[in-house]
């Protein structure tokens, strides 16, 4: 059942990405990358089971960030996306600080159970949010470099997208799994999570190659 929901999540993310790109062009992509990073971070606090392995949620949503980034990279080159990592970093810092601080304020007696649950969720899961943000920012940085270098060697969109995905996904997943498991996770759990998460993400990103092609055609028609 979870696989089905994952497919739905990926389809919705990609359709909305194309809609935002068609309607708001590059500006929409910038906003998409930041807002989706924050949404995927919040989704990552829930874990689901795929093939008997616990996986943090938000795989489909976070993959669409890379596809959005590659649309921009393909269309505008590295000059245009230099700011992406800086933008992501600054907004993530503001977001994380406000989230952490929010759980430290004295709660009201009105609807206090909800406020207590809010504090407990934020306090115990901040590592997932942090891990997601750090891993995606580093992943994007690596992707931008590898994608550009591959494009210089052979200017084929699908080669650049697939090969860079294979490299940056490994780094991204490794960082995420390490941060979320280094305190109380066993090596076996870390390895299985890493492998399953890597395979799923690669599959979603390979499908995303078509989205980059579709987005490129949009622009030509305008």
């Amino acid at each position: 059942m979870n696989i089905l929901f994952l497919i739905i999540e990926v389809i919705i993310s990609y359709i909305l990405l194309l809609f935002v790109y068609k309607k708001y062009k590059e500006e929409g992509i910038y906003i998409w990358i930041v807002i989706l990073l924050l949404i995927s971070s919040f989704m990552s606090i829930k874990s689901i089971e795929i093939n008997n392995v616990d996986i943090a949620l938000g795989l489909g949503v976070s993959s669409s960030i890379y596809i959005a980034n590659n649309i921009l990279l393909q269309k505008k080159g590295t000059e245009y996306i230099k700011n992406t990592t800086t933008i992501l970093f600054i907004f993530s810092v503001i977001f994380i600080f406000l989230l952490i601080l929010s759980s430290g304020i004295t709660i009201s007696e009105y609807n206090s159970i909800t406020s207590l649950m809010y504090d407990s969720i934020m306090f115990s899961n901040i590592k997932f949010i942090l891990a997601n943000i750090i891993s995606i920012i580093i992943g994007l940085y690596v992707n931008n470099y590898v994608y550009y270098e591959l494009r210089k060697i052979k200017n084929k969109l699908w080669i650049s997208n697939i090969l860079s995905s294979l490299i940056f996904t490994f780094i991204e997943v490794l960082i995420f799994v390490f941060i979320t498991n280094f305190i109380n996770g066993s090596l076996y759990v870390m390895m299985t999570t890493l492998v399953i998460r890597y395979i799923i993400k690669i599959m979603i990103l390979i499908i995303g190659t078509d989205i980059i092609y579709i987005a490129n055609n949009f622009k030509e028609r305008v």
Binding site: N2, K46, S47, I48, E49, D54, L57, I121
Partner: peptide, 12 residues
């Protein structure tokens, strides 16, 4: 997020 079936270890 709510529709996904949570894992056994998930408390959130």
């Amino acid at each position: 997020s709510v529709l996904y079936n949570q894992s056994v270890t998930d408390v959130v």
